[in-house]
Amino acid sequence: MASAESQGWRQKLSRLDVKLSPYIYISPFFILFAVLGLFPLAYTFWVSMHNWNLIGGQGAFVGFDNYTHVIGQEFFWRGMRNTFSIFILSGVTQTLAALALAAVLNQNIRAKTFWRMGVLLPFVIAPVAVGVIFSKMFADQSGLINGMLAWFSIDPVKWHAGVLESHVAIATMVNFRWTGYVTLIFLAAMQAIPSELYEAALLDGANRMRQFVSITIPMLRPTIIFVVITATIGGLQIFDEPRVFDQSGLGGSDRQWMTVTMYIYELGWGSQKSFGRAAAVSWILFLIIILVGVLNFWITQRISSGDSKKVEKAAATKEVAA
């Protein structure tokens, strides 16, 4: 009797084990996410509903006043403009350059490892060092680039005064740092493409360019989506490069290159010390990133899905024929 009972208990336990264990195994991630992701997100929203001073702490509940205040600010919209402009300048060139570089590195070239390591080198240089080097290059009066332009009698570019000029300079820094990293991701994905596809295309008389467009790109679709999404998240939060672009870190006298994250920092830690407003902008940025992410996902999926079906069909036909 006693043993039957204990057996029943054991059975229950083992059933429970089967049902429960998977959740326990995956729980560390979700617990961490709740503590480090979800809670701060919710708390930021709570803060954004109050007057909240960096030193003084929580003040009166003000509802959505912080949101309406910041949306009414010219600097907020200028921050949006700059963020998207720098994001597009860096994101697009970076992805295209990385694709091209990866395609070249994927060929049978000499000293492959050397070249592959080479593209990653800028990624391991400390961002501060990159900042120092580039600020010497992009100095308006004494910079290296304007010095070189002078050899060709080209007027110096006002890197720190013009809007587009400053964005180009900052996008250059971002690209320098990230292109190599993205290249390696593309390269890894390219090497996973079955070589039969290329052989088949070759038999059909497709040239290199045609193979790249009709096989490589469609096969890279999941990777491109990944790269574009992460680049969006990172690009819209760009902070370090524009912040160190001049000494005051406010984004230029006319806020030529002040990004949204710099605006958040200025609101929360600058002279206003208003966490409430900073939190409100953070939430707006959060929603925008989600929106743009979804949009990107939709676009990238459309761009390559048509082609990829064709290729798959072609490949299938070839196999049958073989």
Partner: peptide, 10 residues
Amino acid sequence: AQWSDDWTGS
């Protein structure tokens, strides 16, 4: 601009 690279170099 004070503390800028141009300023330091000048």
